[in-house]
Design a protein around this nucleic acid. Structure first.
Length: 549
RNA sequence: AGGGGCAUCGCCAAGUUGGUAAGGCACCAGACUCUGAAUCUGGCAUGCGUUGGUUCGAGUCCAGCUGCCCCUGCCA
Protein backbone atom coordinates (compact mmCIF):
# COMPACT_ATOMS: atom_id res chain seq x y z
CA UNK A 1 0.00 0.00 0.00
CA UNK A 2 1.89 2.97 -1.26
CA UNK A 3 -0.11 6.01 -2.22
CA UNK A 4 -0.80 9.53 -1.09
CA UNK A 5 -3.67 8.48 1.17
CA UNK A 6 -1.41 6.14 3.08
CA UNK A 7 1.14 8.94 3.31
CA UNK A 8 -1.50 11.17 4.86
CA UNK A 9 -2.26 8.42 7.36
CA UNK A 10 1.43 8.07 8.15
CA UNK A 11 1.63 11.80 8.77
CA UNK A 12 -1.40 11.75 11.04
CA UNK A 13 0.03 8.89 13.03
CA UNK A 14 3.36 10.65 13.31
CA UNK A 15 1.58 13.73 14.60
CA UNK A 16 -0.09 11.80 17.32
CA UNK A 17 -3.55 11.67 15.81
CA UNK A 18 -5.81 8.62 15.88
CA UNK A 19 -3.93 6.78 18.58
CA UNK A 20 -6.63 4.13 18.83
CA UNK A 21 -6.20 2.90 15.27
CA UNK A 22 -7.16 3.52 11.68
CA UNK A 23 -10.76 3.13 10.68
CA UNK A 24 -12.17 3.55 7.17
CA UNK A 25 -15.51 2.87 5.55
CA UNK A 26 -17.01 2.03 2.18
CA UNK A 27 -20.23 4.05 1.86
CA UNK A 28 -22.33 3.03 -1.17
CA UNK A 29 -25.73 4.50 -1.82
CA UNK A 30 -28.08 1.58 -2.45
CA UNK A 31 -29.39 2.93 -5.73
CA UNK A 32 -27.54 0.81 -8.25
CA UNK A 33 -25.15 -2.06 -8.82
CA UNK A 34 -21.48 -1.83 -7.97
CA UNK A 35 -19.06 -1.52 -10.86
CA UNK A 36 -15.33 -1.70 -11.46
CA UNK A 37 -14.97 1.89 -10.27
CA UNK A 38 -16.42 0.91 -6.91
CA UNK A 39 -13.95 -1.95 -6.78
CA UNK A 40 -11.19 0.63 -6.74
CA UNK A 41 -12.77 2.34 -3.75
CA UNK A 42 -13.47 -0.95 -1.99
CA UNK A 43 -9.90 -2.14 -2.46
CA UNK A 44 -8.62 1.21 -1.27
CA UNK A 45 -10.77 1.46 1.84
CA UNK A 46 -10.55 -2.15 2.94
CA UNK A 47 -6.92 -2.26 1.86
CA UNK A 48 -6.01 0.80 3.90
CA UNK A 49 -7.66 -0.69 6.96
CA UNK A 50 -5.89 -4.00 6.49
CA UNK A 51 -2.52 -2.40 5.87
CA UNK A 52 -2.79 -0.30 9.00
CA UNK A 53 -4.20 -3.09 11.11
CA UNK A 54 -7.41 -1.19 11.35
CA UNK A 55 -11.03 -1.74 10.42
CA UNK A 56 -13.29 -0.90 7.53
CA UNK A 57 -17.03 -0.57 7.87
CA UNK A 58 -19.69 -1.07 5.29
CA UNK A 59 -22.18 1.75 5.49
CA UNK A 60 -25.15 2.24 3.26
CA UNK A 61 -25.70 5.88 2.56
CA UNK A 62 -29.47 5.66 2.55
CA UNK A 63 -30.57 9.21 3.18
CA UNK A 64 -32.74 9.60 0.10
CA UNK A 65 -35.67 7.16 0.24
CA UNK A 66 -37.01 8.23 -3.13
CA UNK A 67 -34.00 6.76 -4.93
CA UNK A 68 -32.96 3.77 -2.92
CA UNK A 69 -34.02 0.18 -2.78
CA UNK A 70 -33.30 -3.07 -0.89
CA UNK A 71 -32.65 -4.85 -4.17
CA UNK A 72 -29.39 -2.98 -4.27
CA UNK A 73 -28.30 -3.50 -0.68
CA UNK A 74 -28.26 -7.24 -1.26
CA UNK A 75 -26.27 -7.12 -4.48
CA UNK A 76 -23.78 -4.69 -2.96
CA UNK A 77 -23.05 -7.02 -0.08
CA UNK A 78 -22.72 -10.00 -2.39
CA UNK A 79 -20.25 -8.14 -4.58
CA UNK A 80 -18.04 -6.97 -1.73
CA UNK A 81 -17.91 -10.46 -0.26
CA UNK A 82 -17.17 -11.89 -3.66
CA UNK A 83 -14.18 -9.60 -3.92
CA UNK A 84 -13.03 -11.10 -0.67
CA UNK A 85 -13.59 -8.30 1.80
CA UNK A 86 -15.44 -8.58 5.06
CA UNK A 87 -16.96 -5.92 7.26
CA UNK A 88 -17.65 -8.54 9.95
CA UNK A 89 -20.27 -7.16 12.33
CA UNK A 90 -19.85 -3.62 11.10
CA UNK A 91 -22.62 -3.23 8.58
CA UNK A 92 -24.32 0.08 9.16
CA UNK A 93 -26.81 2.36 7.54
CA UNK A 94 -26.91 6.12 7.70
CA UNK A 95 -30.54 5.53 8.59
CA UNK A 96 -29.37 3.84 11.81
CA UNK A 97 -28.42 7.32 12.92
CA UNK A 98 -31.53 9.28 11.99
CA UNK A 99 -32.36 9.93 15.64
CA UNK A 100 -28.82 11.02 16.48
CA UNK A 101 -28.62 13.10 13.36
CA UNK A 102 -31.84 14.84 14.30
CA UNK A 103 -30.40 15.64 17.70
CA UNK A 104 -27.24 17.04 16.17
CA UNK A 105 -29.38 19.28 13.99
CA UNK A 106 -31.19 20.50 17.09
CA UNK A 107 -27.84 21.20 18.69
CA UNK A 108 -26.81 23.20 15.65
CA UNK A 109 -29.98 25.25 15.94
CA UNK A 110 -29.27 25.87 19.59
CA UNK A 111 -25.84 27.16 18.67
CA UNK A 112 -27.58 29.50 16.25
CA UNK A 113 -25.84 27.72 13.38
CA UNK A 114 -28.92 26.44 11.59
CA UNK A 115 -32.35 27.79 10.74
CA UNK A 116 -35.61 26.76 9.22
CA UNK A 117 -36.16 28.40 5.87
CA UNK A 118 -39.59 28.89 4.27
CA UNK A 119 -38.18 29.73 0.87
CA UNK A 120 -39.18 27.44 -1.96
CA UNK A 121 -36.60 25.38 -3.81
CA UNK A 122 -36.88 27.84 -6.66
CA UNK A 123 -36.31 30.83 -4.37
CA UNK A 124 -33.35 29.20 -2.73
CA UNK A 125 -31.81 28.54 -6.09
CA UNK A 126 -32.38 32.12 -7.16
CA UNK A 127 -30.84 33.59 -4.05
CA UNK A 128 -27.86 31.28 -3.97
CA UNK A 129 -25.93 33.59 -6.30
CA UNK A 130 -23.68 32.43 -9.08
CA UNK A 131 -20.16 31.16 -9.43
CA UNK A 132 -18.87 34.69 -9.53
CA UNK A 133 -21.28 36.50 -7.23
CA UNK A 134 -22.34 35.79 -3.68
CA UNK A 135 -25.89 34.92 -2.73
CA UNK A 136 -28.53 36.76 -0.74
CA UNK A 137 -29.48 35.91 2.79
CA UNK A 138 -32.90 34.42 3.27
CA UNK A 139 -35.45 36.66 5.03
CA UNK A 140 -35.96 33.75 7.44
CA UNK A 141 -32.32 33.52 8.32
CA UNK A 142 -32.59 35.38 11.58
CA UNK A 143 -35.47 33.63 13.25
CA UNK A 144 -35.02 33.11 16.93
CA UNK A 145 -33.55 29.88 18.20
CA UNK A 146 -36.86 29.09 19.89
CA UNK A 147 -38.82 29.56 16.73
CA UNK A 148 -36.36 27.42 14.77
CA UNK A 149 -36.53 24.69 17.39
CA UNK A 150 -40.29 24.78 17.27
CA UNK A 151 -40.49 24.78 13.50
CA UNK A 152 -37.96 21.98 13.12
CA UNK A 153 -39.94 19.89 15.58
CA UNK A 154 -43.02 20.51 13.50
CA UNK A 155 -41.18 19.51 10.36
CA UNK A 156 -40.33 16.25 12.04
CA UNK A 157 -43.90 15.84 13.24
CA UNK A 158 -45.17 16.01 9.70
CA UNK A 159 -46.99 19.29 9.97
CA UNK A 160 -45.65 20.53 6.66
CA UNK A 161 -45.78 19.20 3.17
CA UNK A 162 -42.82 18.29 0.99
CA UNK A 163 -40.77 21.29 0.05
CA UNK A 164 -42.58 23.67 2.35
CA UNK A 165 -39.60 24.16 4.61
CA UNK A 166 -36.00 23.08 4.94
CA UNK A 167 -33.36 23.30 7.61
CA UNK A 168 -30.28 25.19 6.50
CA UNK A 169 -26.85 25.61 8.05
CA UNK A 170 -26.12 29.24 8.81
CA UNK A 171 -22.67 29.90 7.41
CA UNK A 172 -21.92 32.53 4.79
CA UNK A 173 -24.01 33.45 1.77
CA UNK A 174 -21.10 35.35 0.27
CA UNK A 175 -18.66 32.47 0.37
CA UNK A 176 -16.93 31.74 -2.94
CA UNK A 177 -17.60 28.10 -2.13
CA UNK A 178 -21.19 27.30 -3.04
CA UNK A 179 -21.32 24.58 -0.44
CA UNK A 180 -20.88 27.12 2.32
CA UNK A 181 -23.77 29.35 1.23
CA UNK A 182 -26.19 28.11 3.88
CA UNK A 183 -26.52 24.59 2.50
CA UNK A 184 -29.76 22.71 3.07
CA UNK A 185 -29.18 19.99 5.64
CA UNK A 186 -32.70 18.60 6.11
CA UNK A 187 -35.58 18.34 3.70
CA UNK A 188 -39.14 17.19 4.06
CA UNK A 189 -40.08 14.06 2.14
CA UNK A 190 -43.18 12.10 3.01
CA UNK A 191 -41.69 8.99 1.51
CA UNK A 192 -41.43 5.43 2.68
CA UNK A 193 -37.88 4.50 3.54
CA UNK A 194 -36.72 0.96 2.85
CA UNK A 195 -35.59 0.55 6.45
CA UNK A 196 -37.32 3.10 8.62
CA UNK A 197 -40.65 2.90 6.86
CA UNK A 198 -42.86 5.88 7.64
CA UNK A 199 -41.11 6.78 10.86
CA UNK A 200 -39.56 9.88 9.35
CA UNK A 201 -40.77 12.53 6.98
CA UNK A 202 -37.63 14.61 7.16
CA UNK A 203 -34.36 13.28 5.84
CA UNK A 204 -30.81 14.62 6.25
CA UNK A 205 -28.79 15.60 3.22
CA UNK A 206 -25.56 13.82 2.34
CA UNK A 207 -23.41 16.74 3.45
CA UNK A 208 -24.94 16.64 6.88
CA UNK A 209 -25.31 12.90 7.34
CA UNK A 210 -21.95 11.80 6.03
CA UNK A 211 -19.50 13.58 8.32
CA UNK A 212 -21.62 12.77 11.33
CA UNK A 213 -22.02 9.13 10.39
CA UNK A 214 -18.26 8.97 10.02
CA UNK A 215 -17.78 10.59 13.41
CA UNK A 216 -20.35 8.35 15.10
CA UNK A 217 -18.59 5.24 13.80
CA UNK A 218 -15.18 6.50 14.80
CA UNK A 219 -13.95 6.68 11.23
CA UNK A 220 -10.52 8.26 11.05
CA UNK A 221 -10.08 8.64 7.31
CA UNK A 222 -13.09 9.28 5.14
CA UNK A 223 -11.88 8.54 1.64
CA UNK A 224 -14.04 9.76 -1.22
CA UNK A 225 -13.77 10.94 -4.81
CA UNK A 226 -12.53 14.27 -6.13
CA UNK A 227 -15.90 15.92 -6.67
CA UNK A 228 -16.31 16.14 -2.91
CA UNK A 229 -13.23 18.25 -2.47
CA UNK A 230 -15.38 21.38 -2.38
CA UNK A 231 -17.47 19.82 0.33
CA UNK A 232 -14.59 19.33 2.70
CA UNK A 233 -14.85 22.82 4.21
CA UNK A 234 -18.41 22.02 5.20
CA UNK A 235 -17.37 18.60 6.47
CA UNK A 236 -14.88 20.26 8.78
CA UNK A 237 -17.20 23.12 9.67
CA UNK A 238 -19.89 20.73 10.83
CA UNK A 239 -17.68 18.62 13.03
CA UNK A 240 -15.94 21.69 14.40
CA UNK A 241 -19.25 23.36 15.16
CA UNK A 242 -20.46 20.31 16.99
CA UNK A 243 -17.29 20.21 19.08
CA UNK A 244 -15.74 17.01 17.79
CA UNK A 245 -12.13 16.82 18.93
CA UNK A 246 -9.70 17.60 16.18
CA UNK A 247 -7.32 14.87 17.34
CA UNK A 248 -9.84 12.13 16.79
CA UNK A 249 -12.47 13.39 14.40
CA UNK A 250 -12.53 11.98 10.84
CA UNK A 251 -10.60 13.57 8.05
CA UNK A 252 -11.84 13.56 4.47
CA UNK A 253 -9.35 12.70 1.73
CA UNK A 254 -10.25 12.70 -1.95
CA UNK A 255 -8.86 10.60 -4.82
CA UNK A 256 -9.59 10.39 -8.54
CA UNK A 257 -12.30 7.98 -9.60
CA UNK A 258 -11.55 5.26 -12.12
CA UNK A 259 -12.31 5.70 -15.77
CA UNK A 260 -11.68 2.84 -18.18
CA UNK A 261 -11.54 2.74 -21.97
CA UNK A 262 -14.16 0.79 -23.89
CA UNK A 263 -16.66 0.86 -21.09
CA UNK A 264 -18.77 3.14 -18.92
CA UNK A 265 -18.53 3.44 -15.18
CA UNK A 266 -21.50 5.53 -14.27
CA UNK A 267 -24.64 4.20 -12.64
CA UNK A 268 -26.77 6.32 -14.92
CA UNK A 269 -25.22 4.99 -18.11
CA UNK A 270 -25.16 1.43 -16.87
CA UNK A 271 -28.83 1.73 -16.04
CA UNK A 272 -29.53 3.10 -19.49
CA UNK A 273 -27.83 0.13 -21.13
CA UNK A 274 -30.03 -2.22 -19.13
CA UNK A 275 -33.27 -0.29 -19.55
CA UNK A 276 -32.89 0.20 -23.28
CA UNK A 277 -32.05 -3.46 -23.74
CA UNK A 278 -28.57 -3.06 -25.15
CA UNK A 279 -27.47 -5.78 -22.76
CA UNK A 280 -29.27 -8.65 -21.11
CA UNK A 281 -29.17 -7.22 -17.62
CA UNK A 282 -26.96 -5.90 -14.84
CA UNK A 283 -24.92 -9.06 -14.95
CA UNK A 284 -24.48 -9.18 -18.69
CA UNK A 285 -20.86 -10.32 -19.23
CA UNK A 286 -20.16 -7.16 -21.22
CA UNK A 287 -21.06 -4.87 -18.33
CA UNK A 288 -18.47 -3.25 -16.09
CA UNK A 289 -20.62 -4.10 -13.07
CA UNK A 290 -19.01 -6.48 -10.62
CA UNK A 291 -21.84 -8.92 -11.27
CA UNK A 292 -21.16 -8.63 -15.00
CA UNK A 293 -17.44 -9.16 -14.56
CA UNK A 294 -18.17 -12.11 -12.30
CA UNK A 295 -20.41 -13.71 -14.88
CA UNK A 296 -17.88 -12.99 -17.57
CA UNK A 297 -15.48 -15.09 -15.56
CA UNK A 298 -13.19 -12.49 -14.03
CA UNK A 299 -11.71 -13.54 -10.71
CA UNK A 300 -11.59 -11.45 -7.53
CA UNK A 301 -7.83 -11.86 -7.57
CA UNK A 302 -7.62 -10.33 -11.03
CA UNK A 303 -9.74 -7.35 -10.07
CA UNK A 304 -7.80 -6.75 -6.89
CA UNK A 305 -4.55 -7.01 -8.78
CA UNK A 306 -5.86 -4.47 -11.26
CA UNK A 307 -6.87 -2.03 -8.53
CA UNK A 308 -3.44 -2.41 -7.09
CA UNK A 309 -1.66 -1.81 -10.38
CA UNK A 310 -3.50 1.33 -11.40
CA UNK A 311 -2.56 3.15 -8.24
CA UNK A 312 -4.35 5.91 -6.41
CA UNK A 313 -3.76 9.56 -7.17
CA UNK A 314 -5.53 12.87 -7.64
CA UNK A 315 -5.10 13.25 -11.39
CA UNK A 316 -8.12 12.36 -13.53
CA UNK A 317 -7.07 9.46 -15.65
CA UNK A 318 -8.34 7.04 -18.22
CA UNK A 319 -6.96 3.57 -17.77
CA UNK A 320 -6.56 1.38 -20.82
CA UNK A 321 -8.71 -1.74 -20.69
CA UNK A 322 -5.65 -3.79 -21.68
CA UNK A 323 -4.43 -3.30 -18.13
CA UNK A 324 -7.48 -5.14 -16.81
CA UNK A 325 -7.11 -7.88 -19.39
CA UNK A 326 -3.49 -8.34 -18.46
CA UNK A 327 -4.51 -8.87 -14.84
CA UNK A 328 -7.03 -11.60 -15.66
CA UNK A 329 -4.65 -13.38 -17.95
CA UNK A 330 -1.97 -13.31 -15.32
CA UNK A 331 -4.27 -14.89 -12.76
CA UNK A 332 -5.91 -17.40 -15.07
CA UNK A 333 -2.63 -18.49 -16.61
CA UNK A 334 -1.73 -19.84 -13.19
CA UNK A 335 -5.08 -21.16 -12.08
CA UNK A 336 -7.02 -22.37 -15.12
CA UNK A 337 -6.73 -25.95 -16.35
CA UNK A 338 -6.08 -26.44 -20.04
CA UNK A 339 -8.52 -28.21 -22.27
CA UNK A 340 -8.99 -28.49 -26.04
CA UNK A 341 -11.95 -27.02 -27.87
CA UNK A 342 -12.58 -26.23 -31.50
CA UNK A 343 -14.74 -23.21 -32.15
CA UNK A 344 -14.98 -23.42 -35.90
CA UNK A 345 -14.51 -27.09 -36.81
CA UNK A 346 -12.95 -28.47 -39.97
CA UNK A 347 -13.19 -32.24 -40.39
CA UNK A 348 -9.96 -34.18 -40.79
CA UNK A 349 -9.79 -37.86 -41.68
CA UNK A 350 -6.59 -39.57 -40.66
CA UNK A 351 -6.43 -42.17 -43.35
CA UNK A 352 -3.84 -44.38 -41.72
CA UNK A 353 -5.56 -44.54 -38.33
CA UNK A 354 -7.91 -47.45 -37.68
CA UNK A 355 -7.92 -47.90 -33.93
CA UNK A 356 -9.24 -45.51 -31.32
CA UNK A 357 -6.89 -44.82 -28.43
CA UNK A 358 -6.51 -42.64 -25.39
CA UNK A 359 -3.72 -40.14 -25.15
CA UNK A 360 -2.33 -38.39 -22.12
CA UNK A 361 -2.74 -34.64 -21.83
CA UNK A 362 -1.47 -32.24 -19.18
CA UNK A 363 -4.02 -30.26 -17.22
CA UNK A 364 -1.54 -27.46 -16.74
CA UNK A 365 1.91 -26.83 -18.17
CA UNK A 366 3.55 -26.49 -14.78
CA UNK A 367 1.18 -27.60 -12.09
CA UNK A 368 1.08 -31.30 -12.98
CA UNK A 369 -1.98 -33.49 -13.29
CA UNK A 370 -2.97 -35.41 -16.39
CA UNK A 371 -6.06 -36.73 -18.08
CA UNK A 372 -6.83 -39.05 -20.95
CA UNK A 373 -8.24 -37.72 -24.17
CA UNK A 374 -9.70 -39.87 -26.93
CA UNK A 375 -8.09 -40.00 -30.36
CA UNK A 376 -9.27 -41.69 -33.53
CA UNK A 377 -9.60 -41.70 -37.27
CA UNK A 378 -11.87 -38.70 -37.49
CA UNK A 379 -11.00 -35.45 -35.76
CA UNK A 380 -11.77 -31.75 -36.05
CA UNK A 381 -9.29 -28.93 -36.16
CA UNK A 382 -9.79 -25.18 -36.13
CA UNK A 383 -10.65 -23.86 -39.57
CA UNK A 384 -8.18 -21.02 -39.04
CA UNK A 385 -5.41 -23.55 -38.61
CA UNK A 386 -5.58 -24.60 -42.23
CA UNK A 387 -4.80 -22.42 -45.23
CA UNK A 388 -4.62 -23.46 -48.84
CA UNK A 389 -2.42 -20.63 -49.98
CA UNK A 390 -0.46 -20.03 -46.85
CA UNK A 391 2.06 -17.25 -46.48
CA UNK A 392 5.58 -18.24 -45.52
CA UNK A 393 5.12 -17.32 -41.90
CA UNK A 394 2.05 -19.53 -41.52
CA UNK A 395 3.30 -22.49 -39.56
CA UNK A 396 0.12 -24.45 -39.29
CA UNK A 397 -1.46 -26.90 -41.70
CA UNK A 398 -1.33 -26.45 -45.46
CA UNK A 399 -1.54 -28.80 -48.43
CA UNK A 400 1.44 -31.13 -48.33
CA UNK A 401 2.54 -29.63 -45.04
CA UNK A 402 2.98 -31.05 -41.60
CA UNK A 403 1.84 -29.93 -38.22
CA UNK A 404 1.80 -31.45 -34.77
CA UNK A 405 -1.49 -32.32 -33.11
CA UNK A 406 -1.03 -31.36 -29.49
CA UNK A 407 -0.49 -34.44 -27.31
CA UNK A 408 -0.84 -36.69 -30.39
CA UNK A 409 0.98 -37.13 -33.67
CA UNK A 410 2.52 -35.13 -36.43
CA UNK A 411 0.17 -35.20 -39.38
CA UNK A 412 0.64 -34.48 -43.02
CA UNK A 413 -2.06 -33.03 -45.23
CA UNK A 414 -2.40 -35.10 -48.38
CA UNK A 415 -5.72 -34.11 -49.80
CA UNK A 416 -8.15 -31.18 -49.60
CA UNK A 417 -11.82 -31.93 -50.20
CA UNK A 418 -14.14 -29.16 -51.33
CA UNK A 419 -17.83 -28.79 -51.93
CA UNK A 420 -19.48 -27.59 -55.13
CA UNK A 421 -18.80 -23.95 -54.22
CA UNK A 422 -15.17 -24.61 -53.65
CA UNK A 423 -15.27 -24.42 -49.86
CA UNK A 424 -12.90 -26.67 -48.03
CA UNK A 425 -15.01 -29.21 -46.18
CA UNK A 426 -12.58 -31.92 -45.26
CA UNK A 427 -8.92 -32.76 -45.10
CA UNK A 428 -7.30 -36.16 -45.62
CA UNK A 429 -4.16 -36.56 -43.63
CA UNK A 430 -1.82 -39.27 -42.44
CA UNK A 431 -0.13 -39.47 -39.10
CA UNK A 432 3.50 -40.22 -38.54
CA UNK A 433 3.16 -43.18 -36.15
CA UNK A 434 6.65 -42.66 -34.79
CA UNK A 435 5.85 -39.18 -33.61
CA UNK A 436 3.40 -40.00 -30.82
CA UNK A 437 3.74 -37.51 -27.98
CA UNK A 438 5.73 -38.84 -25.10
CA UNK A 439 7.25 -41.62 -27.21
CA UNK A 440 10.97 -42.20 -27.62
CA UNK A 441 10.94 -41.19 -31.27
CA UNK A 442 8.64 -38.21 -30.85
CA UNK A 443 11.28 -35.56 -30.90
CA UNK A 444 11.20 -34.62 -34.55
CA UNK A 445 10.91 -30.85 -34.60
CA UNK A 446 7.91 -29.39 -36.32
CA UNK A 447 7.23 -25.69 -36.25
CA UNK A 448 3.49 -25.69 -35.64
CA UNK A 449 1.34 -27.33 -33.00
CA UNK A 450 -2.42 -27.11 -33.20
CA UNK A 451 -5.32 -28.16 -31.02
CA UNK A 452 -7.99 -30.64 -32.08
CA UNK A 453 -10.85 -32.74 -30.83
CA UNK A 454 -11.83 -36.35 -31.61
CA UNK A 455 -15.11 -36.52 -33.55
CA UNK A 456 -17.15 -39.25 -31.84
CA UNK A 457 -16.39 -38.21 -28.29
CA UNK A 458 -16.46 -34.44 -28.67
CA UNK A 459 -19.30 -32.66 -26.96
CA UNK A 460 -21.18 -29.86 -28.51
CA UNK A 461 -21.25 -26.55 -26.69
CA UNK A 462 -22.45 -23.02 -27.09
CA UNK A 463 -19.65 -20.50 -26.82
CA UNK A 464 -20.28 -16.81 -26.39
CA UNK A 465 -17.50 -14.64 -27.68
CA UNK A 466 -17.50 -11.21 -26.14
CA UNK A 467 -15.82 -8.11 -27.41
CA UNK A 468 -15.86 -4.57 -26.05
CA UNK A 469 -19.39 -3.27 -25.58
CA UNK A 470 -18.22 0.16 -26.64
CA UNK A 471 -15.78 1.24 -29.28
CA UNK A 472 -13.70 4.18 -28.12
CA UNK A 473 -11.56 6.37 -30.32
CA UNK A 474 -7.78 6.12 -30.50
CA UNK A 475 -7.53 8.22 -27.34
CA UNK A 476 -9.93 5.98 -25.51
CA UNK A 477 -12.72 8.54 -25.52
CA UNK A 478 -16.40 7.93 -26.04
CA UNK A 479 -18.66 10.22 -28.08
CA UNK A 480 -21.13 12.48 -26.28
CA UNK A 481 -23.88 10.03 -27.15
CA UNK A 482 -22.19 6.88 -25.91
CA UNK A 483 -25.01 4.67 -27.17
CA UNK A 484 -23.81 5.37 -30.70
CA UNK A 485 -20.49 3.78 -29.79
CA UNK A 486 -22.03 0.41 -29.04
CA UNK A 487 -20.17 -2.36 -30.81
CA UNK A 488 -22.64 -4.37 -32.92
CA UNK A 489 -20.33 -7.37 -32.64
CA UNK A 490 -19.86 -7.29 -28.89
CA UNK A 491 -21.44 -10.73 -28.67
CA UNK A 492 -20.96 -13.52 -31.16
CA UNK A 493 -22.63 -16.79 -30.30
CA UNK A 494 -21.15 -20.00 -31.59
CA UNK A 495 -23.72 -22.75 -31.30
CA UNK A 496 -21.70 -25.72 -32.44
CA UNK A 497 -18.34 -25.57 -30.87
CA UNK A 498 -16.77 -28.95 -30.09
CA UNK A 499 -15.04 -29.66 -26.82
CA UNK A 500 -13.18 -32.62 -25.43
CA UNK A 501 -15.34 -34.83 -23.23
CA UNK A 502 -13.50 -34.20 -19.96
CA UNK A 503 -15.42 -30.97 -19.59
CA UNK A 504 -18.85 -32.58 -19.81
CA UNK A 505 -19.92 -32.13 -16.21
CA UNK A 506 -18.21 -28.84 -15.50
CA UNK A 507 -20.21 -26.68 -13.14
CA UNK A 508 -21.05 -23.05 -13.78
CA UNK A 509 -18.19 -20.66 -13.08
CA UNK A 510 -15.50 -23.29 -13.72
CA UNK A 511 -12.74 -21.65 -15.72
CA UNK A 512 -10.53 -23.21 -18.39
CA UNK A 513 -8.00 -22.20 -20.90
CA UNK A 514 -9.10 -23.51 -24.28
CA UNK A 515 -5.70 -24.22 -25.68
CA UNK A 516 -4.47 -21.51 -28.03
CA UNK A 517 -7.81 -19.68 -27.88
CA UNK A 518 -8.27 -17.99 -24.54
CA UNK A 519 -9.83 -18.31 -21.14
CA UNK A 520 -13.42 -19.47 -20.85
CA UNK A 521 -15.89 -19.95 -18.04
CA UNK A 522 -18.97 -22.13 -17.77
CA UNK A 523 -21.93 -19.76 -17.83
CA UNK A 524 -24.91 -19.96 -15.45
CA UNK A 525 -27.13 -20.69 -18.44
CA UNK A 526 -25.52 -24.12 -18.74
CA UNK A 527 -27.80 -27.17 -18.55
CA UNK A 528 -27.02 -30.87 -18.95
CA UNK A 529 -28.27 -30.66 -22.51
CA UNK A 530 -26.57 -27.42 -23.39
CA UNK A 531 -23.12 -26.49 -22.16
CA UNK A 532 -22.57 -22.73 -22.37
CA UNK A 533 -19.21 -21.00 -22.15
CA UNK A 534 -18.28 -17.34 -22.01
CA UNK A 535 -14.98 -16.17 -23.35
CA UNK A 536 -13.37 -14.26 -20.51
CA UNK A 537 -10.46 -12.97 -22.54
CA UNK A 538 -8.46 -14.25 -25.47
CA UNK A 539 -4.81 -15.23 -25.30
CA UNK A 540 -2.32 -12.68 -26.56
CA UNK A 541 -2.16 -13.23 -30.25
CA UNK A 542 1.06 -12.37 -32.07
CA UNK A 543 -0.07 -14.23 -35.18
CA UNK A 544 -2.99 -11.89 -35.77
CA UNK A 545 -0.53 -9.01 -35.82
CA UNK A 546 1.69 -10.78 -38.31
CA UNK A 547 -1.30 -11.74 -40.41
CA UNK A 548 -2.73 -8.24 -40.49
CA UNK A 549 0.57 -6.54 -41.05
C1' A B 1 -13.42 34.07 -15.50
C1' G B 2 -15.35 33.38 -8.07
C1' G B 3 -13.67 29.00 -5.63
C1' G B 4 -11.47 24.12 -5.47
C1' G B 5 -8.18 20.61 -7.92
C1' C B 6 -4.74 18.44 -11.57
C1' A B 7 -0.54 18.65 -15.30
C1' U B 8 6.17 13.27 -15.34
C1' C B 9 6.96 8.15 -21.88
C1' G B 10 1.00 6.03 -26.22
C1' C B 11 -1.84 4.52 -21.02
C1' C B 12 -1.46 4.20 -15.52
C1' A B 13 2.23 5.95 -12.02
C1' A B 14 6.80 6.65 -8.44
C1' G B 15 9.60 10.83 -7.43
C1' U B 16 8.30 14.14 0.32
C1' U B 17 15.34 18.24 3.31
C1' G B 18 16.81 20.62 -4.79
C1' G B 19 21.96 16.36 -6.68
C1' U B 20 21.43 14.58 -12.00
C1' A B 21 13.86 10.63 -14.26
C1' A B 22 11.32 3.74 -10.39
C1' G B 23 7.78 0.23 -11.85
C1' G B 24 3.51 -1.77 -14.55
C1' C B 25 0.52 -1.84 -19.22
C1' A B 26 1.14 -1.30 -24.43
C1' C B 27 4.68 -1.63 -28.15
C1' C B 28 9.42 -3.41 -30.72
C1' A B 29 13.56 -7.01 -31.16
C1' G B 30 15.62 -11.71 -29.83
C1' A B 31 15.88 -16.61 -27.03
C1' C B 32 12.98 -20.70 -25.70
C1' U B 33 8.58 -23.45 -26.68
C1' C B 34 4.39 -30.28 -28.51
C1' U B 35 -0.27 -23.47 -26.56
C1' G B 36 2.48 -18.08 -32.62
C1' A B 37 0.42 -18.63 -24.96
C1' A B 38 3.51 -18.62 -20.80
C1' U B 39 8.67 -17.77 -19.59
C1' C B 40 13.44 -15.25 -20.33
C1' U B 41 16.65 -11.27 -22.37
C1' G B 42 17.18 -6.48 -24.48
C1' G B 43 14.93 -1.78 -26.29
C1' C B 44 11.49 2.09 -25.19
C1' A B 45 11.34 10.35 -21.43
C1' U B 46 19.16 14.53 -22.61
C1' G B 47 13.06 14.79 -20.62
C1' C B 48 9.06 16.10 -16.32
C1' G B 49 2.37 21.55 -19.71
C1' U B 50 4.88 26.41 -20.91
C1' U B 51 8.03 30.86 -20.16
C1' G B 52 11.24 33.18 -17.15
C1' G B 53 13.93 33.40 -12.32
C1' U B 54 16.90 31.56 -7.90
C1' U B 55 21.07 27.93 -7.61
C1' C B 56 27.37 24.94 -8.82
C1' G B 57 22.92 22.02 -9.70
C1' A B 58 15.39 22.19 -10.29
C1' G B 59 10.39 17.33 -12.07
C1' U B 60 11.38 19.03 -7.21
C1' C B 61 11.95 26.32 -4.90
C1' C B 62 9.80 31.34 -6.86
C1' A B 63 6.88 34.26 -10.51
C1' G B 64 3.88 34.55 -14.81
C1' C B 65 1.28 32.03 -18.52
C1' U B 66 -1.50 27.74 -20.81
C1' G B 67 -4.57 23.42 -20.74
C1' C B 68 -7.96 19.96 -18.42
C1' C B 69 -11.49 18.45 -14.38
C1' C B 70 -15.13 19.78 -10.42
C1' C B 71 -18.76 23.38 -8.04
C1' U B 72 -25.05 27.53 -8.85
C1' G B 73 -29.88 19.35 -6.52
C1' C B 74 -34.67 20.35 -1.09
C1' C B 75 -28.89 13.90 -5.39
C1' A B 76 -24.86 11.20 -3.46
Amino acid sequence: MENFVQQAIDDDLKNGKYTTGIHTRFPPEPNGYLHIGHAKSICLNFGLAEFNNGLCNLRFDDTNPTKEDVEYVDSIQEDIHWLGFDWEDRKFYASDYFEKLYNYAVELIKKNLAYVDDLSAEEIRRTRGTLTEGGKESPFRNRSIEENLNLFAKMKAGEFSDGEKVLRAKIDMSSPNMNMRDPVIYRIAHANHHRTGDQWCIYPMYDFAHPLSDAIEGITHSVCTLEFEDHRPFYDWLLESLDFDEKTRPRQIEFARLDLTNTVTSKRKLLQLVKEGHVRGWDDPRMSTLSGLRRRGFTPAAIKKFCNEIGVAKANSLVDISMLEHCVREDLNETADRVMAVLNPLKVILTNVDEDEYLIAENHPHHGGNRYIPFGREIFIERDDFMEDAPKKFFRLKPGGEVRLKYAYIIKCNEVIKDAEGNVIELRCTIDPTSKSGGETANRKIKGTIHWVEAKSAIKAEVRLYDYLLKTDENGNLPEDFISAINPNSLIVIKNALIEPSVKFAAPSTRYQFLRLGYFVVDYDTTFENLVFNRIVGLKDTWSKVKNA
